[in-house]
Design a protein around this nucleic acid. Sequence first.
DNA 1: TTATTTTTTGGAACCGTTTCCAAAATTAAA
DNA 2: TTTAATTTTGGAAACGGTTCCAAAAAATAA
Lengths: 337, 337
Amino acid sequence: MATIKDVAKLAGVGVGTVSRYLSGNSSISSKTGEKVAAAMTELSYRPNSMARSLSSKKSNIIGLWVPSFSGSFHRKMLQTIERELRKRDKHIILANAEDSISDKERIDCLDYLIERDCDGILMSCPELSVFELAKIEARYPKVVFINRNIEDLAEKAFSTNHYQGGRLAAKHFVELGHKKIAIVTGRMNAQDAQSRHKGFLDELLAAGIEVDPSLIESGGYSFQQSVEATELLLSKKKPFTALFCSNDNSGMAAISTLSKHGITVGKDVSVIGYDDIDLAEFTSPPMTSVNIPLEAISRNACHQILNLCYGESLPIQNLFEPSLSIRESTHSITSNK
Amino acid sequence: MATIKDVAKLAGVGVGTVSRYLSGNSSISSKTGEKVAAAMTELSYRPNSMARSLSSKKSNIIGLWVPSFSGSFHRKMLQTIERELRKRDKHIILANAEDSISDKERIDCLDYLIERDCDGILMSCPELSVFELAKIEARYPKVVFINRNIEDLAEKAFSTNHYQGGRLAAKHFVELGHKKIAIVTGRMNAQDAQSRHKGFLDELLAAGIEVDPSLIESGGYSFQQSVEATELLLSKKKPFTALFCSNDNSGMAAISTLSKHGITVGKDVSVIGYDDIDLAEFTSPPMTSVNIPLEAISRNACHQILNLCYGESLPIQNLFEPSLSIRESTHSITSNK
DNA sequence: TTATTTTTTGGAACCGTTTCCAAAATTAAA
DNA sequence: TTTAATTTTGGAAACGGTTCCAAAAAATAA
């Protein structure tokens, strides 16, 4: 592998000149530039990224901490982040907390990234407490949180207004005339699950509707657990005409389980999911779901990390409003009963 | 940030000694070791990974080239790879070819990894031609292919015997007495799709069954396209009692579409999917699917890359046999007709 | 033309490690 | 105790870039 010295020698110039040519932001006479360019192609020179990093004190690596790879949800996030950072010639190194049970393991996972001298870190961490996040930020300020709402760290947190998301769902049910409403919650130690739950309940309350606590079961954001939760709800023999699910996995599980019991979704029971993943359109019936602008969130988080790490000044927005994608899994109660 | 020199000075030893202590494979007297350890904690020293890489000519980074982040399929792969490499303190940098339409774009994506001086690259590349892969390997020998079968590069390719996978599915249909069989194929420019398709047809042929070419439609591995493919199959009014889908996305689409048309899956039409993703268990009815040992494949690919890059000699296996996870979406034809 | 300013250039110093070599310290053998 | 063999150690050189500084070259002004 040719080094910058080889290029300099072949071009008959000093190493500084080659380096300056490479960086592009110094003035180089056109003849010298040509000589350097020729030598570089001749030797098929490619700068050594380690040497570069060492010297410039920038690794050009951004760490990406994800809780899991599952779901269309993270997919869109990963995809957007990869695109945004590659565009700017930054590289992504990956840490996955998939099997991490304890906060300690999750922090270890972060250390694994820090060890590699990332310039900054993107974290999508639904489950760490605000307290832990604050500690992380104090120790490692070049960090940005995706899908978290943190009051004291507002400019480093990018997320949807999940409270509003919950309200949207409730409002839709109210408008359709539903009164007996059940809920399959998400992983309730996750902040987003809490917010959408609270928003949902608050909006109902505002409409004078109270949810029977025994019609609330946890689906833990997983398909399997949500199947069980739905079964549990049905076994109680307390009628309900609407079901709010904390994500689309849950929603799909609920639709499938209700159908299996001979209940026509959209007619007997209306179901709303959350996240509006690609598949939501293809359940039968197609599922009404709260849409979160994940691409915009991810893009803005990337911009903020670029601002923090490389002195750029890209405009950013922190909080994004959800919307409701209405499909056939929800119908007015009066039209059927 | 403290450097090795600071540690050496504080401990009253030379830098070489600190470095040797750090590496762990040189003999150090116990007193010196203690002094160094004390100085390191005192300064909360952490070695600079760029300097290390530059000096040792090892980046300890493995590039991971994935065609997409979608599906439970890639999820398990990512998860396994991350775990295996993290265990050995290697880092993963990510390149996603999601939007790449042309081979050129896919190669650019590879260059993006090479630029970062990865020690090796893991590629999951269903769509590049064997010719392109050979060129890649020639230019960059520290590469390993996941989910590819390459005759001339057998030891660098890790995959399932997809031909056998296709045969397993066909055999199951034959044993259940099915004769009128339809197919929703995958992305047919991908090698794995071709193999399983061929295996499926060959096995049927061996049983004296020929598939009506008009009962073969492409689902392109996507849910949406497979919905359309299934609709198309139904619109032809040619009866079939069995349907082989090239992946589980297709299978789920088919099940959903058939149900929508009042066809009872598992009774009127048997459906087999492929990949056996987690969700296969939760369709209604639960879907019979060809299971591929993705975790073992990924793990072995990692081992091979570790062998190639770091002189380890972990045992490896290249080709893995699929199995059939039989569920309720397939039933004997005689029992219902 | 010469003096002055500006642009371009070469090369040394530095980034923080690893590794090699010779010297020093320790241990074993005589 | 002295000598030889072995272990441990300090420090210089190298890894391949970037950046700074002073010198050289070119452009401009007098």
